[in-house]
Design a protein around this nucleic acid. Structure first.
Length: 570
RNA sequence: UGGGGCGUGGCCAAGUGGUAAGGCGACGGACUUUGAAUCCGUUUACCGUAGGUUCGAAUCCUACCGCCCCAGCCA
C-alpha cells in the first residue's frame, strides 16, 4: 500500500476488522491498480425460475461490494437458452432485485443484446483457427469426449479449413441446418484433464423463439462462451460466481485471451445451504408444479417473493448475508439464524398489537354490564416515540386458550383457578370458576377484576407472575391467521429414504390456518404487507394477496422466542 | 483411479509463522406490564490425521483421510 501511487476509493474498507476473501482480493487489485481502482460487479441470473434466498446471498455480495467501494452493479440476464426462459421470470427477478437493492435503479441488461457481438467474435476465433464446426452428433461428441480418467479423441471434423468452417458457421446462423446437426467448437485440447477444455461447444443450433430476440437467431451461445464476453463488454472487474464454476475459469480465461479483449477476474464462492430448505430450482419448480405450495410466492417458499410475502424485510436478509459471511467451504447454515435476523429487525420496528389466535371467553363478573373503557397502550414499549393507540376493554373478553390451565404444572404462571394475573395494560383478574360444555371442554372462564389495578398496576404493589394479552369480545375484529412451519421435516430435505419420492420429507403441517381469531380493532386498518408484533406471539403481516378490510388475513413471519415451550418439552 | 476445490468449538466464520476474533445456538443469572426484548456471565477449540521444517505452525513441507464439483448441443 505504501508503494501505491493510486488513490484508494474513499469508501474502501481497508483496515476494517476483517473482510471476506473476495473483498481482500479486491483490496489487493486496488492496491496494485489492476483495474485502475474500478470495482464493477454483476448479478447474472438466467430467467428460468424465481430467485431464492441463496440468490439473495449473491445479490448482497454483488451489490454490497459496490456499496463499500463506490463501485457499480449490473443486473444482467444470462438469457442464452430460449427453451428454458420466460418473461414472467425476468419480471419477478427485476422486482426481487429492486426490493433487495433499492438504490439499484438502472434498467436490467440482457446477454441477448450482445448476440451480434458474440457472433462476430466467434467468427474471429474461426479465422484464428481456434474454432471449428463439428458435424458429430450429440451422442458422438459425448463418446469422443472420453471420461474422467481417459483422454478424449479428436473429432474427424476438427481440422477443416478456416474457409470451410467460416462457410459452415455462417450457414448455421443462416438457418440452413436442423437442430443438433452441427455445433461450433473451440479447438483446445481433447486430452485435457479438465473436461471443460476438451473442445467445448460454443454454439448450438436451436430453432427456438427467444423471449426477447424472437426468431432473429437459430444459433445460441453456450454459457462458457457467452459469460466472459458479457462481463468483458460491460467492463465488469470482478465476476463472482459459485464454486461449481471453478473448473470453468480456465475456459473463461482462454476465450478472453484468444480474443485479446478486456479481461475481468472470475472469483468463486460457496453457495448457501439452509437447514430444512431446498434451494435447487428443480425442486422448487416441482413444489410449485405439483401444488405442494400455492406458487413461487407461497410464504413457505425460500424464494425472495415468498419471504417477502411472509413478512421478511430486505434489511433482515442483508443482515443475514453479512452474518453468514462469504467463503469457499461448503456449509449448511442453521435456519434459526435467518429467523434470528428477522426477529431482530422486526423487534425494533414493528408496532405492537394484541391478537388472540385461539380465543377463550372470559367474563368478568364484577365488571359493570355495559361499561366500556379505553386504555391508551404504547405501540412499542421500548420506543415511546412510536406513539400510543386506544384499545377498548369490557366485561366480556377473549384470552388465549393456552394461557389457562385448570391444573397448572409447577412452572406455569399464567391463569388458573383461583389465580390472579394481569391483563396487559388493563387490570388484574382472578379466575373464580370454569364453565364447560357437555363434553367437558372449557368454554368460558368466570373471573373478577380488581378495580384498583387499572392500567395494570396495583397501589399495594403486589406482583403477579403472568401478564396476558386480551381483546374485548364486542370490539374485536375477526381474522384468519396463517401459521407456517418448515416445508420439510428433515434438516437435509434431499436425504430421501431409498426408493421414496421427495414428498416423503414434506411436512404435512407446514401450513396451519386459524380462523375465528380475534384481533384488536386497530388492526382493521392494517395495510396489506404491514408488519406487527402480536404481543407474546410473534411477528405477523397482512397478506398482500388475500387480506382485505373486513376479511383480514395475517401471515406469521416468525414466532417470538418461546421459553415456556422449551420448558414444556423438558 | 484424472482434474478442480474444501476441512478451525453444535452451526457459520476470522486468522496468511509468534502461541485460536466475532456472531448464532446452548446453559446460568439480573431486569421485566410481551415466559419477548435488554443486560451480565458461562460454554467444548489438542485448528481433519500423521510426520517434518522452525526457538516457535491453524498458518510452511510431505503423506494420508474425509467431503463437494466436473464426462449437457443447461447455467
Amino acid at each position: 500500500m505504501e508503494n501505491s501511487t493510486l488513490e484508494q476509493p474513499a469508501a474502501a474498507i481497508e483496515g476494517a476488522a476483517s473482510v471476506d476473501f473476495i473483498r481482500a482480493l479486491i483490496n489487493e487489485d486496488n492496491r496494485t491498480g489492476r483495474f485502475g481502482g474500478r470495482v464493477h460487479t454483476r448479478f447474472p441470473p438466467e430467467p428460468n425460475g424465481y430467485l431464492h434466498i441463496g440468490h439473495g446471498k449473491s445479490i448482497c455480495l454483488n451489490a454490497g461490494i459496490p456499496r463499500d467501494y463506490s463501485g457499480k452493479f449490473n443486473l444482467r440476464f444470462d438469457d442464452t437458452n430460449p427453451v428454458k426462459e420466460e418473461e414472467e421470470y425476468v419480471e419477478s427477478i427485476v422486482a426481487d432485485v429492486r426490493w433487495l437493492v433499492p438504490e439499484f435503479t438502472d434498467e436490467p441488461l440482457f446477454a441477448s443484446d450482445y448476440f451480434e457481438q458474440m457472433y462476430l467474435w466467434a467468427e474471429d476465433l474461426v479465422q484464428k483457427g481456434v474454432a471449428y464446426v463439428d458435424d458429430l452428433s450429440a451422442e458422438e461428441i459425448r463418446q469422443y469426449r472420453g471420461t474422467l480418467t481417459e483422454p478424449g479423441k479428436d473429432s474427424p471434423y476438427r481440422n477443416r479449413s478456416i474457409e470451410e468452417n467460416l462457410d459452415l458457421f455462417r450457414r448455421m446462423r443462416a438457418g440452413e441446418f436442423p437442430d443438433g446437426s452441427r455445433v461450433l467448437r473451440a479447438k483446445i485440447d481433447m486430452s485435457s484433464p479438465n473436461l471443460n477444455l476438451r473442445d467445448p461447444v460454443m454454439y448450438r443450433i436451436l430453432h427456438a423463439s427467444h423471449h426477447r430476440t424472437g426468431d432473429a437467431w437459430c444459433i445460441y451461445p453456450m454459457y462458457d462462451w457467452a459469460h466472459g464476453l458479457e462481463d468483458s463488454i460491460e467492463g465488469i472487474t470482478h465476476s463472482i460466481c459459485t464454486l461449481e464454476f471453478e473448473d470453468h475459469r480456465p475456459l473463461y480465461d482462454w476465450y478472453l485471451d484468444q480474443l485479446g479483449i478486456y479481461h475481468p477476474q472470475q472469483i468463486e464462492f460457496a453457495r448457501l445451504n439452509l437447514t430444512y430448505t431446498v434451494m435447487s430450482k428443480r425442486w422448487l419448480l416441482r413444489l410449485v408444479q405439483r401444488g405442494h405450495v400455492s406458487g413461487w410466492d407461497d410464504p413457505r417458499m425460500p424464494t425472495l417473493a415468498g419471504l417477502r410475502r411472509r413478512g421478511y424485510t430486505p434489511e433482515a436478509i442483508w443482515d443475514f448475508a453479512e452474518r453468514i459471511g462469504v467463503a469457499k467451504a461448503n456449509s449448511m447454515v442453521d435456519l434459526g439464524l435467518l429467523e434470528y435476523c428477522i426477529r431482530e429487525d422486526l423487534n425494533a420496528r414493528a408496532l405492537r398489537a394484541m391478537a388472540v389466535l385461539r380465543p377463550l371467553r372470559v367474563v368478568i363478573e364484577n365488571y359493570p354490564e355495559d361499561q366500556v373503557e379505553e386504555f391508551e397502550i404504547p405501540n412499542h414499549p421500548q420506543r415511546p416515540e412510536l406513539g400510543t393507540r386506544r384499545v377498548a376493554f369490557s366485561r366480556t373478553l377473549y384470552i388465549e386458550q393456552e394461557d389457562f390451565m385448570e391444573e397448572p404444572p409447577a412452572k406455569f404462571f399464567r391463569l388458573a383457578p383461583g389465580r390472579e394475573v394481569r391483563l396487559m395494560n388493563a387490570y388484574y383478574i382472578t379466575c373464580v370458576s370454569v364453565v364447560k360444555d357437555e363434553s367437558g371442554a372449557i368454554v368460558e372462564l368466570r373471573c373478577t377484576y380488581d378495580p384498583a389495578s387499572r392500567g395494570g398496576v396495583t397501589p399495594d404493589g403486589r406482583k403477579v407472575k403472568g401478564t396476558l394479552h386480551w381483546v374485548s369480545a364486542a370490539h374485536a375484529e375477526d381474522a384468519e391467521v396463517r401459521l407456517y412451519d418448515t416445508l420439510f421435516l428433515k434438516e437435509n430435505p434431499y436425504d430421501v429414504p431409498e426408493g421414496q419420492e421427495f414428498t416423503a420429507n414434506l411436512n404435512p403441517e407446514s401450513l396451519q390456518v386459524l380462523t375465528g381469531c380475534k384481533v384488536e380493532a386497530s388492526l382493521a386498518a392494517a395495510a396489506p404487507g404491514e408488519r406487527f408484533q402480536f404481543m407474546r406471539q410473534g411477528y405477523f403481516c397482512g397478506d398482500v394477496k388475500d387480506s382485505r378490510p373486513g376479511a383480514l388475513v395475517f401471515n406469521r413471519t416468525v414466532g417470538l422466542k418461546d421459553t415456556w415451550a422449551k420448558i414444556q418439552q423438558q
